[in-house]
Design a protein around this nucleic acid. Structure first.
Length: 373
RNA sequence: CGGGGAUUGGCGCAGUUGGCUAGCGCGCGCGGUUUGGGACCGCGAGGUCGAAGGUUCGAGUCCUUUAUCCCCGACCA
């Protein structure tokens, strides 16, 4: 009957609370190399939910997925001056391969503009080749000085969309679509409101004419840059020579955009919705939406009742039964609370006899009796 | 990059002015009693103390070198 709290209060040291929740909810571990993170199955399941929703939106817009290499030759990265200057301090560079020093150093991609646009320059000849609408889901590396799980890690997962258009207005429309889509995902799936707007000149993406951002307020009082969408103008199409003949036969450079949404969003989710009892997940992103917890997993009658509930729900919602009989009832309840499961079904003889369930709502902590029929 | 802290079983820690077989809690395994909000008893497995070198009869404790991680600030999805 111990009442000791394993989790420090959210209102205390927020950073302490944050890292504790990440660990206790089995979202992630620290990797052995500085600033790296191991995303555990439960944390990855949340990301998979995000990927599946955002990917559907991207495809709906007519953007195709592709994959470009992890390694970028140094010379390629250096083609756009602002871009290389912006990223130089945080590059991971490969100097050796196969036991020998490389003729040309390779950069582990911090973002893929350069390596993708080299291809774009080959693929675009005519106005008929436009627009190019390509997205990729991948990992990128930025050697950050200061790191924090999900919010800022040396390596992170994201999607990066890269488009090329015949006109600036078309590119602007695309950039706007990017931030609107992200905002929609944040509002509808993360249940996180935020502010859409332009970044100041000093904060905009290295190589962009302007950057649209969606920023959400965190409990620390700081805004989290949740995702960005850039108007690249012709800053890359000129050095990379991405040009085409328009309908009048005039050579022109393309207008480009890029936009990204990363695993940082999971960190924002934890910060925005977590409480003193741990994580609270919005149902649309929760890997498990309903957890059925029998008071006595040894009681075969009770288990049978739970399985009937499970069968009725399975397929409609993401549901699991917690059958561990070596953990006390209270321990199991707290375990799922920390993990942020939206609904916890507490099932004992009382419920089985009445044909009901007692559902604990994670978001407000209230017990509700529901008829099981 | 600047400032702090740390490194001892899986995790969190203790280990005095150097001294016996390196401890404790949690977790883990086995057995039993329990089970409506983080249960309990018994038995048990598991570490050579971040790394390298040195001082000493003797080093987790002292010295030198070194590696790594975490936290706090300025910069970034």
């Amino acid at each position: 009957m111990s009442s000791k709290k394993l989790l420090p209060p959210k209102t205390g040291d927020l950073s302490d609370w944050y890292t504790s929740v990440i660990a206790l909810a089995d979202l992630a571990d620290y990797g052995p190399a500085k600033g790296t993170m191991i995303i555990r199955p439960y944390g990855y399941a949340i990301w998979e939910r995000v990927v599946s929703e955002l990917d559907a939106e991207i495809k709906l817009k007519g953007v195709d997925n592709a994959y470009f290499p992890l390694f970028i030759p140094m010379s390629l990265l250096q083609k756009e001056a602002d871009h290389v200057e912006g990223f130089a301090p945080e590059l991971a560079v490969v100097t050796h391969g196969g036991g020998e020093e490389l003729e040309e150093k390779l950069v582990v991609r911090p973002t893929s503009e350069t390596i993708m646009y080299q291809s774009y320059s080959k693929w675009v000849q005519s106005w008929r080749d436009l627009p190019i609408l390509i997205n990729q889901w991948n990992n990128v590396v930025r050697w950050e000085k200061r790191t924090m799980p999900f919010l800022r890690t040396s390596e992170f997962l994201w999607q990066e969309g890269h488009t090329a258009h015949a006109t600036h207005s078309e590119a602007e429309e695309m950039q706007m679509w990017g931030i609107k889509t992200y905002a929609k995902i944040y509002r509808d799936f993360f249940a996180m409101d935020g502010y859409e707007g332009y970044k100041s000149k000093s904060e905009r993406f290295a190589g962009a004419d302007n950057t649209l951002t969606y920023e959400s307020l965190m409990p620390s009082g700081k805004a989290l840059q949740a995702c960005t969408s850039h108007d690249l103008g012709q800053n890359f199409s000129r050095p990379f020579d991405i040009s085409f003949q328009d309908k009048e036969g005039v050579m022109q450079n393309v207008w480009q955009t890029s936009w990204g949404f990363s695993t940082r969003s999971i960190g924002g989710l934890v910060l925005a919705h977590g409480d003193d009892n741990g994580l609270r997940l919005p149902p649309k992103l929760a890997p498990i939406q309903v957890i059925i917890v029998p008071v006595k997993p040894q009681d075969s009658g009770l288990v049978e009742y739970c399985k009937k509930l499970y069968d009725a729900l399975n397929g409609q919602v993401r549901v699991k039964i917690d059958m561990r009989d070596d953990e006390s009832f209270g321990y199991r309840l707290n375990k799922w609370e920390v993990k942020g499961v939206p609904l916890i079904f507490k099932i004992g003889n009382k419920e089985a006899e009445a044909g009901q369930v007692t559902a604990k709502r994670r978001f407000d902590g209230i017990d509700v009796a529901i008829d099981a029929s």
